[in-house]
Amino acid sequence: MRDLQSGGRRRRIVLGLGAALAASPLSRAWAVEEFPSRPISMVVPFPPGGGFDTIARPFAERLGQLLGRAVVVDNRAGSGGNMGTDFVARAPADGHTLLFANDYLATNPSVNRNTRFDPLKDFAPVSMVGSTQVVMAVRPDFPAKNFEELVALSKKRSLSYGTPGAGTSPHLVGEYLSTISPLQSLHVPYKGTAPAVNDAMGGQIDMVYATSPSVASQIAAGRLRGIAVFGAQRSTQLPEVPTLKEIGGPSVDYEVWYCLLAPAGVPASVLATIRAATRKALDADLAARLARLGYAVKSSEPEAVTHAIRQGLERWKDVVARAKIAID
Rank of each mutant, 00 (worst) to 15 (best):
P45F: 04
V241T: 10
A77Y: 01
P164Q: 02
A308G: 08
S212I: 07
L186Q: 14
M201F: 03
P119H: 10
F87E: 14
H187V: 11
T211E: 13
E314M: 12
S235G: 07
M83G: 06
A56E: 01
A77M: 07
G312E: 02
G226T: 08
K298D: 13
G64D: 03
A22N: 03
A304Y: 11
A166V: 14
I13H: 08
D53Y: 01
G130H: 00
N146K: 10
V319T: 13
G8T: 15
H307S: 15
V229G: 05
R62H: 10
M128V: 13
E301A: 14
S181E: 03
R76W: 09
T163G: 12
W316A: 13
V266S: 09
L66A: 03
Q133Y: 11
G95F: 00
A284V: 11
N146A: 09
A281V: 03
R62K: 12
K145T: 15
Q233R: 14
V88K: 05
L153F: 05
I247Y: 02
P25I: 07
P36T: 05
G192N: 04
M201V: 11
D94L: 05
P239N: 13
A228T: 05
F142S: 01
M136C: 10
G7M: 15
F46L: 09
L260E: 09
M136K: 00
R62C: 11
G226F: 01
A31R: 13
S160C: 04
S41I: 11
L293Q: 07
V43G: 02
M136Q: 10
V134T: 14
T211M: 09
L15R: 11
A210T: 06
H96C: 02
S27D: 08
A288E: 15
K298F: 09
L293M: 12
T107H: 00
P47H: 06
L98P: 04
S127I: 09
S127N: 09
A200I: 00
I327Q: 00
V173H: 03
A304V: 14
D283E: 07
A31E: 12
A60I: 08
A288F: 10
A287M: 07
D118V: 09
R12M: 14
V241D: 01
G130D: 00
V43R: 01
R234L: 10
A284D: 15
R76S: 06
R223E: 13
